[in-house]
Design a protein around this nucleic acid. Structure first.
Length: 322
DNA sequence: ATCGCGCCCCGCCAGG
DNA sequence: GGCCTGGCGGGGCGCG
């Protein structure tokens, strides 16, 4: 993977009428990503197509340090969202060429929100799965029929090309990338610095998981916190419902409404993440890790890890151990 | 590798 | 009549 080479160079390509929020996201997330020693793992540079300032959707202008030449030396290029009606350059040929050349060099190409239109215009999404802001999903499908648009997820990882849904889903995608590059421990710490939940699952429906909990009591939040403190214990759905003072049926329903996942799915996900951190940061045997994470046996851990990230526990440990 | 068992998920519906 | 609840049951999945 991308570990232990020179600092990974992230370049944000801001086109005219860039979404101001998206523009700041990569710098915030990748800039918050540190090694245990405190050393930065990514550098983040912002550039524009011609090196000159661009308008943002917030009304102010963004003054870049570079032009398209910055893309040539990038390890990762990120295209933030643009205001589709106003922006005149989202299908600019020069930009498209630069992005394609980058991809062909092995540079990771990502988009946030309507930045997907820029990638699509460059042909980078042809015959690939991709997502964008739910409001623009239909337009993307219509305008670029070869793109397999999935409007119901927070982000799509196609390996060298990654797209994310609207605005805040860009944070989820950036964290996902950090997790892939450096493991869960570092990604979780970066999330914490950003005061973000460590993850919302990429496959999660865009309209679910509102950041604001509803009328404080009738919620599953407290139970989720309770579960996180005892992941190593065997926990049944019945027990969770009891803790929340709800019937199993109502609890299941609420849980899905509030998290987008079923209780067991969510808990499995938490357990895998805990196991990943244990693999990264301790010398515990695979079986001990499985036990502590509540996954039962090494076999079970092996299976899940393989299904979710495609590697065996010891391989994972070798990749990320510090 | 297969199978059986138990737990889970969720549509359905009756009842409040 | 709309809304929420919670029990039921079939189909599904993970685990041993």
């Amino acid at each position: 993977m991308r570990k232990n080479r020179a600092m990974h160079r992230v370049v944000v390509l801001a086109l005219n009428d860039v979404v101001a929020f998206d523009l700041g996201v990569p710098a915030q997330v990748f800039g918050s990503t540190r090694e245990a020693s405190g050393a930065r793992l990514y550098s983040v540079t912002t550039c524009t197509a011609d090196g000159r300032p661009v308008r943002t959707t917030a009304g102010f202008q963004a003054v870049p340090d570079h032009g398209l030449d910055a893309v040539e030396t990038a390890d990762t290029v990120i295209v933030p969202g643009i205001h589709r009606r106003r922006s005149d350059v989202y299908d600019d040929v020069v930009v498209a060429k630069a992005l394609c050349a980058a991809r062909d060099r092995g540079t990771r190409v990502m988009s946030i929100c309507t930045g997907a239109f820029v990638l699509a215009a460059a042909g980078l999404l042809d015959d690939r799965r991709a997502t964008t802001h739910w409001y623009h999903a239909e337009a993307l499908r219509r305008q670029y029929p070869r793109v397999k648009v999935d409007p119901d997820v927070l982000f799509v990882d196609e390996g060298d090309v990654l797209t994310s849904a609207g605005v805040s889903a860009g944070i989820d995608l950036c964290l996902h990338v950090v997790r892939k590059d450096h493991g869960s421990g570092i990604a979780n710490r970066a999330a914490r610095r950003c005061v973000m939940p460590a993850w919302r699952e990429g496959g999660q429906a865009q309209y679910i998981e509102r950041p604001l909990p509803r009328a404080s009591e009738a919620t599953t939040t407290l139970t989720r916190e309770w579960v996180l403190r005892r992941l190593g214990d065997p926990l049944t759905l019945r027990a969770l419902a009891a803790h929340a003072n709800m019937s199993v049926r109502t609890f299941t329903r609420r849980f899905r409404e509030e998290t987008g996942a079923s209780p067991a799915q969510w808990m499995l996900r938490q357990r895998i993440d805990h196991a990943r951190v244990l693999l990264e940061t301790t010398g515990l045997s695979v079986d001990q890790v499985a036990k502590r994470a509540g996954l039962g046996s090494a076999t079970s851990l092996r299976q899940h890890l393989h299904r979710m990230i495609g590697v065996a526990p010891t391989t994972y440990r070798r990749t990320f151990a510090r």
